[in-house]
Design a protein around this nucleic acid. Structure first.
Lengths: 99, 99
DNA sequence: GGCTCGGTTCGATGATTATCAAACTGATGT
DNA sequence: ACATCAGTTTGATAATCATCGAACCGAGCC
């Protein structure tokens, strides 16, 4: 079974930038982008504890940058690139394209 | 007389995003962009003390986002849009173009 | 010299925030 | 029922950070 939550509106530009300014979260976002679809949580981070990772996922979701879905009982996270692009054109796209 | 400091290299993407994620600093950057050239410090902020503003200017400079110059004895701040664009194409430009 | 004006630096304080371990929850499997 | 696995929440701690006032500095002016 698949279950996706009703996504919150994309947050303020400040919220989005603050969400992306943490290295752990930016790496999460990069991996979600590479995954190009719902990805299991555990594949999206390294070097921090489960609880810390969950905290960062929450911040990303509350900024409207990602959404959570449950697929076959497992939680997945997914980048809301189109939504963020619609609200702030070019911002997330350029950040992801930069090395 | 005009005196411009040798600008530091543009910082990491994290540093740049962190610098822009503060509302006071983003407003400073917006005003510098509008000024399109060296602008006197006092025109670039509202609602915080002189010392706080100076602190924020420093963070922006250390991230390589702005530079300081002295024109006729007065300190001015200027956006380094071209340098940041060269290092992180699209990032700062898109942030400035967004409402 | 002494004064003001614009900025910076110092030191302190309060608020955020990142982090973890532990307890909890919900689903799956035996 | 029990155990396990994945993720969340809670509570606490440590670190970072924004903010301010006060002291300081350099340039121009009287």
């Amino acid at each position: 079974m698949s279950d996706t939550e009703a996504p919150v509106a994309v947050g303020t530009l400040q919220e989005v930038l603050a969400a992306l300014s943490d290295p752990v979260r930016l790496e999460m976002v990069r991996r979600m982008h590479a995954a190009a679809g719902p990805a299991p949580c555990a594949r999206l981070y390294d070097g921090v504890s489960k609880s810390t990772a969950s905290h960062h996922f929450k911040i990303l979701r509350e900024a409207g940058v990602t959404e959570r879905s449950v697929i076959g009982g497992q939680t997945h996270q997914e980048l809301r690139l189109d939504d963020v692009e619609e609200r702030y054109p070019g911002v997330l796209r350029s950040i992801l394209s930069v090395s």
